[in-house]
Simulated assay, not measured.
Amino acid sequence: MYQSYIWDFDGTLYDSYPIMLKAFMKTLKEYGFDPDPAEIYYILKDSSSKKVAEKYNLDFQEFTKAFKANEALDDRLPLSFDGTKETLEAVVAAGGKNYILTHRDVISTK
């Protein structure tokens, strides 16, 4: 068994994409765009939020600030996928360590 596991937060440990997608759609509409939600979802899963900003020729820093503000308006918390807790606990029980790789800040990850 491996001793160290690196997990991606969004879309791997937690189903955060519905909340993120809603905020991305709202932000893009505020910029005057009417994007296809399936296309935005694909870009986020395949690449990054930076690619979304690039697709619409938006300043990434400004877009991120607006997106994060819209995301903060959603009071839902992302839910972990079935089996996440048990998997992470099994790694620790076997003497391993879990690490998270994420673009999120510490507060939103906790």
Rank of each mutant, 00 (worst) to 15 (best):
M1T: 03
Q3G: 15
I6M: 13
W7V: 01
W7K: 11
W7Y: 09
D8T: 02
F9A: 15
D10K: 04
T12L: 14
T12S: 11
T12H: 06
T12V: 15
T12Y: 06
L13I: 07
L13T: 05
L13F: 05
D15W: 01
S16C: 09
Y17E: 14
Y17S: 04
Y17I: 04
M20I: 10
M20L: 11
L21I: 06
K22R: 13
K22I: 02
M25D: 13
M25R: 04
K26H: 10
K26V: 09
T27Q: 12
T27D: 12
L28P: 04
L28D: 07
K29G: 07
E30C: 06
E30P: 00
Y31E: 14
Y31W: 08
Y31H: 12
G32F: 03
G32C: 04
F33G: 05
F33L: 06
P37M: 04
P37K: 05
P37T: 03
A38G: 05
E39N: 08
I40R: 05
Y42D: 08
Y42V: 00
I43W: 01
L44I: 05
K45D: 07
D46I: 00
D46L: 01
S47A: 07
S47P: 00
S47I: 00
S48L: 05
S48W: 03
K51Q: 04
K51L: 01
V52H: 02
V52N: 03
V52M: 06
A53N: 07
A53I: 03
E54N: 04
E54R: 04
Y56E: 06
Y56V: 01
Y56W: 04
Y56T: 01
N57F: 05
N57W: 01
L58I: 03
D59K: 12
D59R: 07
F60D: 08
F60R: 03
Q61M: 11
Q61G: 03
Q61I: 12
E62L: 12
F63P: 02
F63G: 05
F63E: 06
K65T: 10
K65F: 09
K65L: 10
K65W: 02
A66H: 13
K68Y: 11
K68A: 10
A72C: 05
L73D: 13
D75A: 11
R76K: 10
L77K: 15
P78W: 10
P78E: 11
S80I: 00
D82Q: 07
D82H: 06
T84P: 05
T84D: 09
T84H: 08
K85E: 14
K85V: 04
K85S: 10
E86P: 01
E86D: 11
E86M: 05
T87D: 09
L88C: 10
L88W: 02
E89P: 00
E89Q: 13
A90D: 13
V92Y: 07
V92E: 14
A93D: 15
A93C: 08
A94F: 04
G95K: 10
G96S: 10
G96D: 12
N98D: 13
I100A: 15
T102A: 12
H103R: 08
H103A: 13
H103F: 10
D105V: 03
V106N: 13
V106R: 15
S108V: 01
S108E: 15
T109F: 13
K110W: 09
